[in-house]
Amino acid sequence: MTDTIVTERPHSAIIRVWHGEDWYDALPQLVDNAGLPFDVTSYTLELFARPTLDHSVLLKLLSSTEGTIRKEDPTLGLVNFYLPQSDVEASLPVGTWEQFFRITWVDELLGEVSKILWTGKIIVFPANDAAA
């Protein structure tokens, strides 16, 4: 990924995850079109992993409401993904899957509104054997 993610235009991203390890990824800073930090305080952040983008099966959902997406410094647009190793292995089979990252907020006129910030692959690798 790049150094920043501009929230006003779509991006693509490849995420790599390994069995045998906790999944921790600090995301690039989320910024607006002017390059200023995008305050995520009032937003719900979600990452969906599926066999294909339009597939009905959900392999895993990471969410700021469940603590698997952490708002490290929300006013500066700094967030990270965290999933313990046991959850990685239980929910993400080894292989290449599709993922998308979505933000959701409540608009006074429209109600709940969602926007996909990026789509891409999530590649899940087998555990590294440190003894080999």
Rank of each mutant, 00 (worst) to 15 (best):
T4I: 14
L76Y: 02
L27V: 03
K115W: 13
L36R: 11
T104V: 07
S114W: 06
D32W: 06
V17Q: 00
V94Q: 06
T52Y: 10
F81D: 05
D3Q: 12
S86V: 12
L45W: 02
T96I: 10
I5Q: 06
Q99G: 11
I122D: 01
E112P: 08
Q85E: 13
A130Y: 13
L27D: 07
T119N: 09
E72Y: 01
V79P: 01
G20M: 01
A26D: 13
S56E: 14
I122T: 15
R50G: 05
I122K: 01
T96D: 00
T44W: 08
F101S: 04
Q85M: 15
P93R: 06
L62I: 05
T2I: 11
H11N: 08
N33P: 00
R16L: 11
V6K: 15
T4C: 01
E89G: 03
P10L: 12
V88T: 11
S64K: 02
M1H: 14
P84V: 09
V124W: 00
D39R: 06
T96N: 06
S63K: 05
R70A: 08
V17S: 02
G35F: 10
I116N: 14
V124F: 02
L58Q: 14
I15S: 10
A130F: 11
S114I: 00
P51Y: 07
F100Y: 14
E46R: 08
P28V: 10
D3R: 11
P51Q: 03
I103S: 02
L30G: 00
E66I: 10
L110S: 09
P126Q: 13
S114A: 15
I123M: 08
R70V: 14
G35L: 10
G67A: 08
K71F: 04
L78Y: 02
D25P: 03
G20T: 04
G95A: 10
E89F: 02
L83V: 12
S64E: 09
R16K: 15
D3L: 15
I69L: 04
A132E: 13
L109M: 00
D3K: 13
D32Y: 12
I5H: 05
E46T: 10
V106F: 06
L62K: 01
W18G: 10
H11V: 10
Y43C: 03
R9C: 05
E46Y: 05
T44H: 09
P74R: 07
E66P: 02
K71L: 04
E46A: 09
P74E: 13
K121G: 00
V17L: 06
V40N: 06
D39C: 04
Q99E: 04
K121H: 08
L61W: 03
L92Y: 01
T7M: 08
F101L: 09
Y24Q: 14
V106A: 06
F100S: 07
E72L: 11
R70I: 15
V40F: 05
D54Q: 13
T75F: 06
G111D: 03
P93F: 01
S12R: 13
L61S: 07
T65K: 14
I122V: 14
F125K: 14
